[in-house]
């Protein structure tokens, strides 16, 4: 809509030179960003889109329990501690209001991290590195991770999940 009313019949008039230039620039820019989006998705130095599957809370819990049973080495404040081998599937279960198990990983090794929630949506925020993901009930979200820096990290729930949300803090250890 222009400020001044356009005279009827504008459709039949040839394009003005400046209009041609600006339309061409807009068209070329549309093409450029259409190409840049998938290109940067592939070559940009960032995490690729994860793999995800449907799963019920019961099935995810079963897989997590099997994982804990197989690799548990101890307990930490009532939460099992697991030391999984490199290149294996590892599981992190979110539930009101705790993360389990405590994952003890080896720096430089790669793992397939399965994330899910067995009740409501939880936010997985790994601190202090500030890496953020979602634990969505009904979905097994898989991230291929290679921890590089040794240390003890906190897993904070950053998606409000009820009365105990503020106390939902897990632990991730990289050795």
């Amino acid at each position: 809509m222009s400020i001044q009313a356009i005279k009827p019949g504008w459709w039949q008039k040839p394009l003005d030179g400046q209009e041609k230039i600006w339309l061409s620039i807009a068209f070329v820019w549309c093409l450029a960003i259409t190409i840049i989006m998938p290109w940067w998705h592939v070559v940009g130095d960032h995490n690729m889109s994860g793999e995800y599957h449907k799963i019920t809370g019961g099935d995810f819990s079963m897989l997590t329990d099997q994982f804990i049973e197989k690799y548990q080495v101890g307990m930490d404040e009532g939460i099992p501690v697991v030391v999984p081998p490199a290149n294996s599937d590892i599981f992190l279960r979110g539930a009101q209001w705790e993360w389990d198990p405590v994952l003890k990983l080896k720096a430089g090794s790669t793992y397939r991290l399965h994330l899910s929630s067995i009740d409501v949506n939880h936010g997985v925020s790994i601190q202090p590195v500030n890496m953020n993901f979602q634990a969505v009930p009904g979905y097994d979200s898989i991230l291929t991770i290679t921890p590089t820096t040794k240390g003890e990290y906190r897993i904070i729930c950053n998606e409000f999940c009820g009365a105990g949300h503020h106390a939902m803090i897990g632990k991730l250890i990289v050795e």
């Binding site: 599957h53 799963i55 099935d59 897989l63 599937d89």
Partner: peptide
């Protein structure tokens, strides 16, 4: 199009 977990 999301498939069920192949682990199950």
């Amino acid at each position: 199009s999301v498939s069920y977990s192949p682990l199950i």
